[in-house]
Amino acid sequence: MATGFLTDTTVCIGCKACEVACKQWNQLPADGYELTGDSYDNTKQLSGTTWRHVAFIENPKKRRLTGDVDLVALAEEVTEQLPGGAELDALGRWAFMSDVCKHCVEAPCQQACPTGAIIRNEFDNVYIQPDICNGCGYCVPACPYGVITQVPHDGRAFKCTLCYDRQRDGLEPACAKACPTNSIMFGEVEELEQIAEERVQDLHDKGYTQAYVWGTPEVGGTGGIKGNHSKFILMDEPEVYNLPRHPYLPQEKVKGGTIASMIAAGVLGAVVALAFRD
């Protein structure tokens, strides 16, 4: 049984309850009190001490609401024919996304880890064993999503554990529990895939044709990663959310590189041998 997240960004309200719940449950230290000026996002990114991060994307392309608009009708998701030709796209004006470890099917960090500290646990989540990690930091540039970092004063690498401890006690992860709009859903991957498909279909039917699932092998997760256990329903291009369009598995070419090196070693050996001829 594989568990994972489905983060439906269309209903995220940017409350950051997931960030707080994650920090609190996992007893993660604060990241300082920097004011970035980047919208309402002062967290900036995922790191070894931030395992949920809410991105705030302001999308001023969609025009503001003008004229006499029936707000009740809007709330009931009637988007067409607004007075004065105005467009109100509540989903487009603000985009929030609660980012998290993608728990790749073929995880680059796990393949990179030389100590075997990074494993797949019984829930098929990618988990770092903190008693094994020796802080070599090789998983950090291996991650195609920039999720893992080393925690400076600790030395080891950390990331989302998908609340391994809570799952073992039959509880859902802290972020999913705290999410007030059910933007963060937790469950079995297959079940979540079905929910995602239905939700995207629903959004398409309502006219939001740009909605799609990110983290399937088709979209995001090509190149050997084979998809993610943490999926997202997005409304814009992946880059807008700081996500790569086609991430790939960095270890895919280790074999090829090694063969190329062997050939080079043979050639260089021959060159040195030739140099001995007077």
């Binding site: 980047d38 919208s39 900036k44 090789y138 950090v140 195609p144 920039g146 893992i148 807008v240 959310y241």
Partner: peptide
């Protein structure tokens, strides 16, 4: 296209 110029991956 990116998110406030924040690097999407982390350097070693």
């Amino acid at each position: 296209k990116n998110y406030y110029g924040i690097p999407p991956i982390k350097h070693a």
